[in-house]
Write a protein that binds this DNA or RNA. Structure first.
Lengths: 152, 152
DNA sequence: ACTGAAAGCACTTCTCC
DNA sequence: GGAGAAGTGCTTTCAGT
């Protein structure tokens, strides 16, 4: 992390909120001309601090209102089995995130589905196909809130 | 969810991967002219299916390599207490996500910190200040993978 | 590191199909 | 619902400090 100054942090803050802001607008907010802002943004992209720019969709509007965390235990823990499991599970459209974790279980999945019926279908038709899973436990999300970006 | 056709889904897929793609490039990939692509993107924005456009930062490069899920139990469950708790906890820079959940605990936090020392500091100096928390349990993330966007 | 200006290019609108 | 063209405005570069 090559030291970010006040200006860089402000740029990152604004781009995390809305990455379609123009260089011109950024420059105005920072009381600078286009050039230094443009150069700083490009540098932040080249250094990899800014990984990418993505459109965020509304889960409700695309039938993904239901969020469930599923903790799972698996039989084998060799590198290739875990890797294969990760790849296959992430290929399922319902699975959004995959974590190898400490604690009583070995891994945790975050899934997003339309409703309870879709959840049931996921468990019965998809998750149960994985031979390596010995047990699992579902935690339903009643409400959620997340931060827009990182505080720098 | 006003039915998305094949073109809309392709547009959303591409914008979820890189929202800085130009209308011109989008149009070329879809074998269309600028106009229909432009109109479709604007409609997706107006309808709220596209919520916003954000820059994604690399956690490693901004000292947020360590991810921990903390399940917590709280004493009171009235609407205002829970709401206050959510607001205060999300105001902490370490806390990225907050969930009210079913199961053995009442809520779950996803926190991202630099290292174990920063985690210890968070627990001892910040989380322990919340009077309503009766108990909590930390699950450390050993490795993680997440999908770029939703499969439509 | 920043300013200011200029060229290039994409966005946005409009007309027509 | 889409094509093509034109005007506008932002991006990107470059000379200068």
């Amino acid at each position: 992390m090559e030291s970010l100054d006040r200006t860089d942090r402000k740029i990152l803050e604004l781009l995390q909120q809305d990455c379609r802001i123009t260089i011109k607008e950024l420059a105005e907010k920072l009381h600078l001309s286009n050039t230094p802002v443009y150069e700083r943004v490009k540098k932040l992209e080249r250094s990899g601090i800014i990984k990418n720019y993505v459109a965020v969709l509304d889960p409700e509007k695309i039938d993904r209102s239901m969020v469930v965390f599923i903790s799972v235990s698996i039989t084998k823990h060799t590198r290739d089995v875990v890797q294969k499991f990760e790849t296959e599970v992430l290929a399922l459209p319902e699975v959004m995130e995959f974590y190898i974790t400490s604690g009583n279980f070995d891994a945790m999945l975050k899934i997003m589905v339309k409703d309870m019926h879709a959840f049931q279908h996921f468990i019965q038709e998809k998750l149960s196909k994985f031979e390596y899973i010995t047990r699992f436990n579902s935690t339903f999300v009643i409400s959620s809130a997340e931060k827009i970006g990182y505080d720098l």
